[in-house]
């Protein structure tokens, strides 16, 4: 699988993603600088990593979506290429209109950095097809603006079309107010577009995918993508 990792000014999870894809999973991985508008048609996966691109000024992701590289990413996405946005990358995908809805400040008004559980809601996507054996994943979150919002009508539309991939839950997979760390509507932790080739999620799978650590739940997302390519 040929992977590209976009580097914005302020990205800080780019090296983690590179480490997992290149060193742990042995995939061909390239850096993509935000100022370069390039042909991405040879890539199987583009990752928009976490961080604080452009210092989160105005709104998280609001400035980065106008970076030249985003024209290439949008072009690739519209032609069926796989795009994964993690945390700040998810915020950029929403701002760019590749995914519906918006991310707001956590309802606790605090930055939250901890391990959470998410339930896999569908395995019928390139990002989750290898999650069959484990429906509850433990993945860390680290964000201040991670409360997903979309109007109720559009939320049920997402549910009907199977676009919700992950919901916050407890260790057993039950969903309640106490297992929803940031106040996201429908406890949504990750979703994809209707064509299922663009996915955004707040939890960081790249932070739990190296076998040196006890938890490797994040690998199932990358393994899903590898098995497809």
């Amino acid at each position: 699988m040929k992977c590209g990792i976009v580097v914005f000014p302020g990205s800080n999870c780019d090296h983690d993603c590179y480490h997992i894809l290149k060193k742990i999973l042995n995939q061909e991985t390239h850096w993509l600088w935000h100022k370069d508008e390039v042909d991405l048609s040879s890539f199987d996966l583009i990752v928009l990593p976490g961080g604080f691109s452009y210092g989160d000024y105005l709104r998280a992701g609001a400035i980065s979506r106008f970076s030249p590289v985003m024209n290439s990413v949008i072009h690739l996405a519209e032609n069926g290429g796989n795009v994964l946005g993690i945390c700040n990358g998810f915020q950029i995908l929403l701002e760019s209109g590749l995914l519906p809805g918006a991310l707001m400040q956590n309802h606790t008004r605090k930055f939250i950095c901890k391990n959470v559980y998410v339930r896999v809601e569908t395995t019928d996507t390139p990002f989750t097809q290898k999650c069959n054996d484990k429906l509850v994943l433990e993945i860390p979150i680290a964000h201040h603006q991670g409360s997903y919002y979309i109007d109720p009508h559009s939320l049920s539309d997402l549910e009907e079309k199977g676009q919700i991939l992950f919901r916050y839950c407890d260790a057993k997979g039950s969903i309640s107010e106490s297992s929803n760390p940031n106040g996201s509507v429908g406890a949504v932790a990750g979703l994809c577009n209707e064509q299922k080739n663009v996915m955004g999620m707040m939890p960081h799978p790249e932070r739990c995918a190296d076998p040196l650590w006890a938890n490797t739940d994040g690998q199932s997302i990358f393994q899903s993508l590898i098995s497809q390519s």
Binding site: A62, P100, Y149
Partner: peptide
């Protein structure tokens, strides 16, 4: 285009 996110 930029200053407001009209979704919210």
């Amino acid at each position: 285009r930029l200053l407001a996110n009209t979704v919210i």
